[in-house]
Design a binder for these strands. Structure first.
Lengths: 207, 207
DNA sequence: GAAAAATTTTTTAGGCAATAAAAAATTTTT
DNA sequence: AAAAATTTTTTATTGCCTAAAAAATTTTTC
């Protein structure tokens, strides 16, 4: 049996990602060639393709790493801060926006998001979605807390509600990164309108 | 002054789109080269690029055309069918899903959606978004009808609510096209869970 | 209505992503 | 240590996309 081969593979993966991180940060993904990443990582260009499929695949893998940080930050900063679901949702969205914009600029996020949809079925598309799911679960847990405090109806599924709010937040995020001139304050205000209108939609006798 | 030049341009645009439609339908966008489209349209490959930017741009322009049909269909089939906002939202989503899946398969829709985000600031990315907006407005108008019938609270903005529901629907649509095995029945059920949880979220004393 | 000017398309050339297949190198097994 | 299996590299090709020069065509001017 072995071990060396696996270790070398893990090593190459790490080196490729490390090289890509540096080069993307310096010149952006568009100006960075696969060949340059390969050179810096000490492998051939074809090997980069073998490991990550496409250049977007490399980018997605990089974002997946940063998302793990985001997940920790979320689990640290979200709980116990909100008294109602609207405030909770806004904090959730703000943490994601802040983290995203600190990490990469909007143009690159557009590419990331596009890749996550186009490559939804690839290995890294899936890991991206899985992290989204885990983020949503942090929200779900907080909703359960609010339910225990009677700030959210006990009749709804916290899981369903968390996923739905995550969806709304996600579309707002797409909207935010789609327009270079949109500020986080504007995005927050728009999200607030979403939440207010949707939570206040049904008249009391219809619920 | 002129006219001939403009007419020839419009003509080339039309011919390129017509050629692309046929070739995409026959072999799919991946297997269709820009050069093949250009040949069929009687122009050079560079001209296709000059007119539509990228192959995704051509695809987006084609989808924008079909979306105009969808808009008509929506304006024809949505109004006056629903007594409550959840039913309205589900019908809205069903019409979009049906139209989409009749027109193109999921793999291609993933490319379209990815392109609409990646090229959000291009000419055709914008026209795509504009049609989304018009679709949402059909929904807004129906919400206003429901408000007049006291099925939706008079306190919320019909516009904001329409946009928010559209967002939710849009994420469900992305989810639907992201997984080849997901049926429209499953997607509808998931959307229903979104709507029920979100509309029922707040306890009566919190509204 | 012909020459000049302006605009648009085509040709030409090149960079790069992505894929496939053969060749070479390296690890694992016997 | 040789054979087998696996993985990377080399090599070659296709196609998207861009830029710049050349050619063609329309519009304007006289």
């Amino acid at each position: 049996m072995s071990g060396l081969r696996e270790k070398q593979k893990a090593d190459r993966r790490r080196r490729i990602l490390e090289a890509a991180r540096k080069l993307f940060a310096k010149a952006g993904p568009d100006a960075t060639t696969i060949e340059a990443i390969a050179d810096a990582a000490g492998v051939s260009g074809v090997t980069v393709h073998n490991y990550y499929g496409t250049k977007s695949g490399v980018l997605l893998a990089l974002v997946a790493e940063s998302d793990r940080e985001l997940l920790e930050k979320m689990a640290r900063e979200l709980p116990g801060q909100s008294d109602d679901v609207i405030d909770l949702a806004r904090r959730f969205a703000a943490i994601i926006r802040d983290h995203a914009i600190t990490f990469l600029d909007k143009e690159i996020w557009r590419q990331v998001f596009a890749a996550s949809i186009a490559e939804a079925n690839s290995r890294f598309g899936k890991s991206y979605h899985s992290l989204d799911h885990q983020l949503a679960l942090v929200l779900v847990r907080e909703i359960e807390v609010l339910q225990a405090r009677d700030a959210v109806s006990p009749d709804v599924s916290a899981y369903d509600l968390g996923k739905a709010i995550f969806s709304l937040q996600n579309m707002r995020f797409v909207n935010f990164i789609s327009f270079d001139e949109m500020t986080d304050v504007e995005s927050d205000a728009a999200f607030l309108r979403d939440l207010r209108s949707i939570f206040g939609a049904l008249p009391p006798d219809r619920r």
